[in-house]
Amino acid sequence: MENNRSKLNRELAQMLKGGVIMDVTTPDQAEIAQEAGACAVMALERIPADIRAAGGVSRMSDPKMIQNIQAAVSIPVMAKVRIGHFVEAQILEAIGIDYIDESEVLTPADDVYHIDKTKFQAPFVCGARDLGEALRRIEEGASMIRTKGEPGTGDIVQAVRHMRALNSAIRRVRSMREDELFETAKQMGVSCSLLQSIQKNGRLPVVNFAAGGVATPADAALMMQLGAEGVFVGSGIFKSGNPGKRAAAIVQAVTNYKDSKLLAQLSDDLGEAMVGINEQEIHLLMAERGK
């Protein structure tokens, strides 16, 4: 039964593929996101750009606010908990959340341990900067992976770095001799059986999305061409001039990510993009949280 649950949870992520998951902070925004073609929404009190600006400790959102968003839309609703805060995760599971994001965007609650996600019925998505991190999260029970990127910046550079690091590591593992896998597993801090499955299948055993810094249809298509199976958009939509239009354009860009003519049309007249901050200008690197 336990196994079935983790399989069902991985399969829900398969249904999200080719889609865009959007950060929303109110039921109204959730409806705009659903109408624009979001395949799921991430309910949170403040979007990452505002969390960054406000500083202080950032926690799981008010369950009441999440429930209002659940009531407003028919698509899956996700919400974030602090890294290692398994009680916040228990609370989200109790209100019937569809996916829990154990997220570096919030202030970590545990600087050593992540949540033992195998103890939950609800599925988890976790951030990763490279193959080792992704596999460690999968062994802890994550049923979906996303790049960490650098949330709330509108700067795509870190998401690109993480996606490239992960996929090139998979290619390296594919080309290894079997006896080399043991040492690599040791270096990565992961089990050899998981690496063997990577070598055999040439991909993660779970769905892998891009997240962190996606602000334009071109950013979304870039991540898809680099091998993402779908895209999270956080601050990029509701920090921009025309959220509905930008959201719909990003949705189409993810479906037709190789069609440059369409991408050109989609990039027309979108209004102002979020201002963004360069990675060199920020003091807090959220991606460094939770390895």
Binding site: M15, L16, K17, G18, G19, Q34, E35, A36, G37, A38, C39, A40, S74, I75, P76, A248, V251, Q252, T255
Partner: peptide, 12 residues
């Protein structure tokens, strides 16, 4: 997948 997404994209 999500029927709302496909419905919208079928039109768009």
């Amino acid at each position: 997948g999500e029927s709302t997404v496909m419905k919208k994209l079928l039109r768009d």
